[in-house]
Deep mutational scan, measured.
Amino acid sequence: MDTYKLILNGKTLKGETTTEAVDAATAEKVFKHYANEHGVHGHWTYDPETKTFTSTE
Rank of each mutant, 00 (worst) to 15 (best):
A24S: 08
H41G: 08
T3Q: 08
F53G: 00
T12E: 12
A27L: 01
D2I: 12
K51P: 00
T52G: 00
F53E: 00
E20T: 13
A24G: 04
E16S: 10
V30P: 00
T17D: 02
L8E: 02
D23L: 03
T54R: 06
A27V: 01
K14I: 10
T26R: 05
G10R: 03
G42P: 04
E28A: 09
G15H: 14
K32T: 06
F53P: 00
G10L: 08
A24V: 11
E49F: 11
T26Q: 13
D2C: 14
L6V: 03
K14N: 09
D47M: 04
K14W: 11
D47V: 05
A24E: 07
M1Q: 08
A27N: 00
E28G: 06
F53H: 01
T18M: 08
L8M: 11
A35R: 02
T50C: 05
T54H: 07
G39Q: 07
H38E: 05
E16W: 13
K51W: 04
Y46F: 08
H41C: 11
T3H: 07
T52H: 01
E20S: 11
T56K: 06
T3G: 03
T54N: 05
V40G: 03
H43E: 15
Y34F: 10
E49M: 11
T3F: 06
F31Q: 01
D23C: 04
W44M: 09
H43L: 13
Y4I: 02
K51M: 06
A25S: 09
I7T: 04
H43A: 12
H33F: 11
W44G: 01
Y4E: 02
E49S: 11
H38M: 15
K29G: 08
I7W: 03
L8I: 12
K11C: 15
Y46G: 00
H43D: 14
H41M: 11
K5C: 08
T17P: 02
Y34S: 01
T12S: 11
T3W: 08
H43P: 06
A21C: 07
S55W: 14
A24Y: 13
L13Y: 15
T3Y: 06
T45A: 09
N36Y: 14
N36L: 15
T56Q: 07
T17A: 12
D23P: 01
Y46S: 00
K29F: 08
V30D: 05
G10M: 07
F53Y: 06
M1Y: 13
K14D: 05
V22N: 09
T26E: 14
W44Q: 02
G10S: 08
E16R: 05
I7G: 01
A35H: 01
L13D: 06
T56D: 13
K5D: 03
T18G: 03
A27I: 01
E20A: 10
T19C: 15
T54F: 10
T18A: 06
G42W: 14
T19I: 15
V30Y: 15
L6K: 00
T19Q: 05
D23A: 03
T12D: 13
N9M: 10
T54K: 05
L6E: 02
K51H: 07
Y46Q: 00
S55P: 03
E28S: 06
N9K: 10
A27F: 01
T18R: 07
A27M: 00
T19S: 04
K29D: 08
V22W: 12
T54W: 10
E28L: 15
E20H: 10
T17W: 15
S55M: 15
L8N: 01
K5L: 08
K11S: 12
Y46N: 00
T19P: 01
T45R: 06
K5Q: 05
T45D: 10
A27G: 00
G42L: 09
W44K: 00
A25C: 13
G10F: 14
E16T: 12
V40Y: 11
K32H: 10
T56W: 09
N36T: 13
F31G: 00
A35P: 01
T54L: 07
K14C: 14
E16M: 09
A35T: 06
Y46E: 00
T50L: 07
P48E: 12
I7D: 03
K51A: 03
K32R: 15
K32F: 08
T18N: 06
P48M: 07
T56N: 09
E20Q: 14
T52Q: 04
A24I: 09
W44F: 11
K51V: 01
Y4N: 02
W44P: 00
H43R: 10
T17I: 15
T17M: 15
V40I: 11
K51N: 06
I7N: 03
V40W: 14
E20I: 14
Y34G: 01
L13S: 09
I7F: 06
N36M: 14
A25M: 11
P48Y: 06
V22E: 13
T26I: 07
N36E: 15
G42Y: 05
L13A: 10
P48S: 10
N9D: 12
A27W: 01
T3K: 08
Y4G: 02
L8R: 00
W44I: 06
T18C: 11
F31T: 00
G15F: 15
A35Y: 03
G10W: 14
L13M: 14
T18E: 09
F53R: 00
G39E: 05
I7Y: 06
L8A: 02
T19R: 04
Y34C: 05
Y34V: 04
T17C: 15
Y4R: 00
K14S: 11
Y46I: 00
T52F: 02
H41Y: 14
L8D: 01
K5Y: 12
V40M: 08
T50E: 06
G39A: 05
D2F: 13
T26H: 13
L6D: 03
N36I: 13
Y34T: 03
T50R: 05
G15W: 15
L13H: 15
L6R: 00
E28F: 15
G15D: 12
F31H: 01
E57S: 05
K29E: 11
Y4K: 01
F31N: 00
E28Y: 15
E49C: 10
E57T: 05
H33C: 10
E20V: 14
E28P: 00
I7H: 04
T50P: 00
G39C: 06
D2L: 11
Y46W: 03
